[in-house]
Design a protein around this nucleic acid. Structure first.
Lengths: 197, 197
DNA sequence: GACGTATCAGACTGATTGGTCTGTTTTAGC
DNA sequence: GCTAAAACAGACCAATCAGTCTGATACGTC
């Protein structure tokens, strides 16, 4: 086996993630990615069969990290016995990390890829959908425990957490103020508190 | 004055709006817009000084329509005297129009433009911000009337309506199911009902 | 009906795009 | 040390990009 290329692959993925979240997928050229990563055409097309392939691998990595973020949040509140408190503290957990999220990224990669979906391929959309459904299913459990029997649309209420994240990213980008992420998660927490009381 | 070009201009804007909302701004070429509108390079660059200029005019028109949608919603509930009912019915008004919204457009133009912001120019972002602030200010009034004195972040709660719209657009695009727009607005209505009670 | 101007048509251009191809370097196994 | 294959470098290519330019055409004004 010759030299190890995983470091180069990660450098290319990191550079691409920065550029794509900042400027969009279509507006990011592979030449830009190569320059940002300090790499070359040869290396790029050795690790990725096409720009579309890069998009899919980018989304898969991002989605895996996203699901990990969900599990971190669940773990942080798993010890709480009151299901109403557990639900509210679950939201507050992300509220406390709003600033951290926005300092690490100027937008959600999902948005960049979904906006130009025909360029990224259907596999990318599938990876996003997998993450969304994972969030939904876990939060539905939190909601059912907290609300008991109810005729509310629990799937939609669960999806509303994802919706708040994505909408808040767009609001931050519109206003240029990253604090809106924390404030939107706080607004969601207030609304959820009202719902469980 | 020679022949009237406003019809051509509108055809170009309509074609561009369809293509940009479907595929994104960067992924839409002016040649595509021209073909979709059945026009020509000469006509395009007569009406728009550049692709960036097209983006700005596109957003300005879309934002004006967006603000009109807000005022339609306000007018529909203006006759309701109970401010709590007025707020809830304001949200329900859009909930009833969720399907209509999604059949007319596959995404929000704001998202397409914000994702590739460096291509669309700062004027486009300014037009979006104007619309967002208009929504915020009007909804803050509804909230203040409904909630009275409170230490909640009313700006953030008002912005949450915009956030729900944008997040729901992304959820619809992820799942391919336009019904999520209506369901997310219904979830927002449920949460707001809980807040005012 | 001549004239001037806004409107439009489309060939053309230089830059950039995603992707290919040839060749070189590195390293594990023998 | 030899070899094979993975890892990489960068010149190169056809296609497409946004934008220009020349000219034709329609139409209100006089």
């Amino acid at each position: 086996m010759p030299r190890d290329g995983t470091a180069t692959r990660i450098r290319l993925l990191d550079a691409a993630e920065r550029l794509v979240t900042d400027n969009g997928f279509a507006a990011t050229s592979v030449d830009q990615v190569i320059a940002e990563a300090g790499s070359s055409k040869g290396a790029f097309f050795h690790h990725f069969s096409s720009k579309t392939d890069l998009g899919e691998q980018l989304v898969e990595r991002y989605a895996a990290h996203d699901v990990q973020t969900l599990y971190d949040g669940l773990a942080a509140v798993a010890h709480l016995e009151d299901p109403k408190v557990r639900l509210v503290e679950f939201v507050r957990h992300f509220e406390g990390r709003g600033d951290e999220i926005m300092s690490a990224q100027s937008n959600c990669l999902y948005v960049s890829v979904l906006t130009e979906r025909q360029l990224a391929g259907p596999d990318a959309t599938g990876a996003i959908l997998g993450a969304v459904v994972t969030w939904r299913d876990e939060i539905v459990t939190l909601l059912r425990d907290a609300l008991g029997d109810t005729d509310h649309d629990l799937d939609a209420l669960a999806d509303h957490v994802f919706v708040t994240f994505e909408g808040a990213f767009i609001l931050c980008r519109t206003t240029g103020d990253p604090d809106h992420m924390r404030r939107q998660l706080a607004a969601l927490r207030v609304l959820v508190e009202a719902l469980v009381h």
